[in-house]
């Protein structure tokens, strides 16, 4: 497992090094805004990969803590531009201070049954009660729905990525970090490749009002390429090559759907980016939108077909 992981991280470093060289050459030969943005993205990638490598080296606790922090950041971004009222403060505070720590503690503890219902059931019932006690009925249903949606997406969905670490896949014990690596690699590569294919061959927009950069050429080209890479990674997973390909395809499609849906949410709130945290990438949610949809899909497919 360590050998595989070192090999994989080496591969990622080599890939990023190559991208950095190309980015540097481009900035020298024909500088443009796209190239500047590309280089900012590559730089941010280095930081994210370094954090990911560190999480792997230190272990499960740090990985869970990092995803909890990511959830915190995404939820903060989401609720900051979402119109709630001062009367929702208690519900919002509980979402941050109770449900984020509890959800991630359940992963650490391996309490899978409660992990799966904490937010869809318990938070769903508790949060509106906290808000209703303030007695403000204006927009009540919309306010409640916004907070629940934010929590589902930023905490519940995102937490399914580190939850891969607690699945019991027969014959795969102690190697679950590779499942997480598989998920993140396919999702992020799919995002990048769709962007690249879209820039090179993009003609037919899928939903111009929602996300003008998304094209059929980008989705098909980038999606198939990412699926191929996922299939090529079958040897690090408990899957056969054809199963790895289907899993990667499911991740690509779910990730694409997440990007599209969250783009519509963002636009309905009147924003272009979720925030300014990661240079060149917009906010944390701009990077996590596809993960938030892909993680639960991949988690449950793996759990249903492969886990004991």
């Amino acid at each position: 497992m360590n050998d595989k992981m070192i090999l994989l991280l080496g591969g990622v470093f080599a890939l990023l090094a190559a991208a950095s060289v190309v980015g540097f050459a481009l900035s020298r030969r024909k500088p443009s805004e796209t190239v500047t943005n590309l280089n900012a993205r590559i730089k941010a990638w280095w930081a994210m990969v370094a954090v990911f490598a560190l999480a792997f080296l230190v272990g499960k606790e740090l990985t869970i803590a990092l995803f909890a922090l990511t959830s915190f950041w995404c939820l903060r971004e989401f609720l900051s531009i979402t119109p709630t009222r001062p009367e929702d403060h208690r519900a919002v505070a509980f979402a941050f201070y109770l449900f984020i720590p509890l959800q991630y503690w359940l992963i650490w503890d391996g309490w899978q049954s409660l992990f799966a219902i904490l937010i869809p059931v318990w938070a769903f019932l508790l949060l509106p009660v906290l808000a209703v006690l303030k007695g403000e009925t204006e927009d009540f249903m919309a306010r409640t729905a916004r907070i629940q949606w934010a929590l589902m997406l930023c905490v519940f969905c995102v937490s399914h990525a580190p939850a891969l670490l607690i699945l019991h896949v027969p014959g795969f014990a102690g190697q679950n970090f590779l499942l997480l690596f598989f998920l993140i690699t396919v999702v992020q590569l799919s995002d990048v490749l769709q962007y690249v294919f879209g820039k090179l061959f993009g003609r037919h927009k899928i939903a111009p009002r929602v996300s003008p950069a998304k094209t059929w050429e980008g989705l098909i080209g980038g999606g198939l390429a990412a699926t191929a890479v996922g299939a090529g990674l079958w040897w690090i997973t408990p899957f056969a090559p054809w199963q790895a390909a289907l899993m990667a395809l499911a991740i690509v499609l779910a990730g694409f759907a997440g990007g599209l849906v969250l783009s519509a949410v963002k636009r309905s709130l009147g924003a272009k980016d979720w925030g300014t945290m990661i240079e060149g990438h917009g906010g944390a949610l701009d990077r996590m939108d596809s993960v938030s949809f892909a993680a639960p899909v991949f988690f449950h497919l793996t759990n249903y077909f492969f886990a004991a």
Partner: peptide, 18 residues
């Protein structure tokens, strides 16, 4: 902007809203 949502009158802890 957003102060009343992050830490309204009577709240004990500020909520993380930018």
């Amino acid at each position: 902007t957003n102060l009343a949502r992050a830490y309204p009158k009577g709240a004990i802890l500020p909520a993380p809203i930018v």
